[in-house]
Design a protein around this nucleic acid. Structure first.
Ligand SMILES: [Mg+2]
Length: 457
DNA sequence: CATTGCCAGAAA
DNA sequence: TTTCTGGCA
């Protein structure tokens, strides 16, 4: 329920709010917290940042080392925390009351794979304790022989618990499992399996040959399905602690949809400002630079309710400096808009209505690479870069040096090559609509004036 | 619901 | 190869 609704039912409720900056959610505190946790969890083995609050760890090596160096059968050496693990398949799933778990850790059923798993579980217990002590977050974990099973197990006992999937219990775990519970099968593919093949549990999947699954879903997906039904996933844990892209976006639902280029420019500038800030942080903290700038938008057309086409994403080489990013983003937007309204060669005729409304805007930076480790001066590094990727742009030569410098000093507001409609629309769309019902004509008239695509170069 | 971010596959 | 779309979480 919504916060306001909850407050009526429960006036004492403490509602936690996501911070807002530049008129949008600011997830900075969560990103920081996530990074801190990653820095702890990455201590014992290869670590892949899977999301803002999840990682995969490949602890094979650490576990092998532990197995080689420690006697497994010494109960005193096994931490209380590790012994609190849930171990799937011990007895009849009657929540294994301590004794069987102890026994499993001590013997691990003589199976080398499960001995490794037991060591992995001990390492994970230690890591989770460190997260609790150093970052003051609890977390849950799954320990299994591959990513898919570990992810599945991590969700089985929450919060602040860990679950082990011994090799021998994989079948019994998967067989009755509703297909939609599997990662990647929670959406359309899962629905298709249910509707088109009558597959409701992972066990049902076992009845289909790899070839049959490939017929329905293609070579790769077919093979993938055949494998995951058997608990097989060759998916490697990538060694990556940092995100591969940064983005800033905002949605403008219903009456908040943006209908003037001034408002689009305003919001795009806000989003670009945030992105630019985060890119500089990444540069300072991680010595990485992004190479591609991409704009996504969602839109609908005012007149035809059956607007079939989607607003196309557009990307271009990324130039550092807030003003550069803002300028490039706006150009990308208009490139997309021109396509969207279908005025490619058709010069916007005087009477032609291109009534559009933007319901979502997002700008992102990708192709992020570490600068060569020997690079001492980032400024000089940029000097060498700017020449290479301004290819399609006109002659901003005199600015490129400044731009490189800018990105370092973090000040770029004065750089404005582009002559846009200069006015900032202080009149919020939704505010405006409170006062005047969206008389289509009126809005379109505003579009006519302000949406002119004249500045597209 | 909103704001991310990853990836596979198709298109350019 | 890069760009763009769509799916997924
Ligand atoms: Mg998560």
């Amino acid at each position: 329920m919504r916060g306001a609704e909850a407050k009526q039912v429960c006036p004492e409720i403490q509602l936690v709010q996501v911070p807002v900056a530049r008129g949008k959610a600011d997830l900075g505190v969560y990103r920081s917290a996530g990074s801190e946790v990653v820095s702890i969890l990455s201590r014992k083995g290869r670590c892949e940042r899977a999301s803002i609050d999840e990682v995969y760890l490949d602890l094979t090596e650490s576990a092998e080392t532990m197995l080689a160096e420690l006697p497994l059968d010494r109960l005193e050496l096994i931490s209380e925390e590790a012994l609190k693990s849930h171990v799937l398949g011990l007895d009849v799933d009657g929540d294994n009351a301590g004794e069987s778990v102890r026994k499993w850790f001590l013997g691990s059923d003589a199976d080398h794979r499960d001995k490794l798993l037991a060591c992995g579980a001990r390492i994970v217990a230690e890591l989770r304790l460190q997260v609790l002590e150093e970052a003051e977050f609890t977390c849950s974990a799954g320990i299994a022989h591959n990513k898919m099973l570990a992810k599945l197990a991590s969700g089985m006992n929450k919060p602040a618990q860990q679950t082990v999937v011994p090799f021998s219990s994989v079948k019994k775990l998967l067989e009755p499992l509703p297909i939609k519970k599997m990662k990647q099968l929670g959406g359309k593919l899962g629905t298709s399996l249910q509707v088109d093949l009558g597959v409701n549990t992972v066990g049902d999947l076992l009845h289909f040959s790899e070839e049959k699954l490939q017929e329905h879903y293609g070579i790769n997906t077919g093979t993938w399905l055949w494998n995951i039904a058997r608990g097989i996933s060759g998916d490697e844990v990538e060694s990556r602690l940092l995100p591969k892209s940064h983005g800033a976006g905002k949605t403008f639902p219903g009456p908040r949809a943006l209908k003037t280029s001034a408002s689009v420019e305003k919001w795009l500038n806000e989003l670009c400002e945030e992105l630019s800030e985060r890119l500089l942080s990444d540069l300072e903290q991680n010595k990485r630079i992004a190479h591609t700038l991409t704009l996504h938008a969602n839109a609908y057309k005012l007149n035809d309710s059956e607007s079939v086409n989607k607003f196309p994403s557009k990307s271009c080489p990324l130039r550092y400096g807030t003003a550069k990013i803002q300028e490039d983003a706006l150009n990308l937007f208009y490139a997309g808009l021109r396509e969207y309204v279908g005025s490619n060669n058709i010069k916007t005729k005087g009477n032609q209505r291109h009534g559009w409304a933007i319901t979502g805007l997002s700008i992102s930076a990708s192709k992020i690479v570490a600068i060569p480790s020997g690079t001492h001066s980032i400024t000089k590094y940029f000097h060498n870069q700017v020449q290479t990727h301004t290819s399609e742009k006109q002659s901003n030569d005199i600015f490129t040096q400044d731009a490189a410098h800018l990105s370092y000093s973090g000040n770029g507001s004065y750089l404005r090559l582009h002559s846009m409609c200069p006015q900032i629309n202080t009149c919020e769309e939704d505010t405006r609509n409170k006062y005047s019902m969206p008389s289509l004509n009126q809005d379109e008239d505003q579009n006519e004036v302000r949406q002119g695509l004249a500045h597209i170069v």
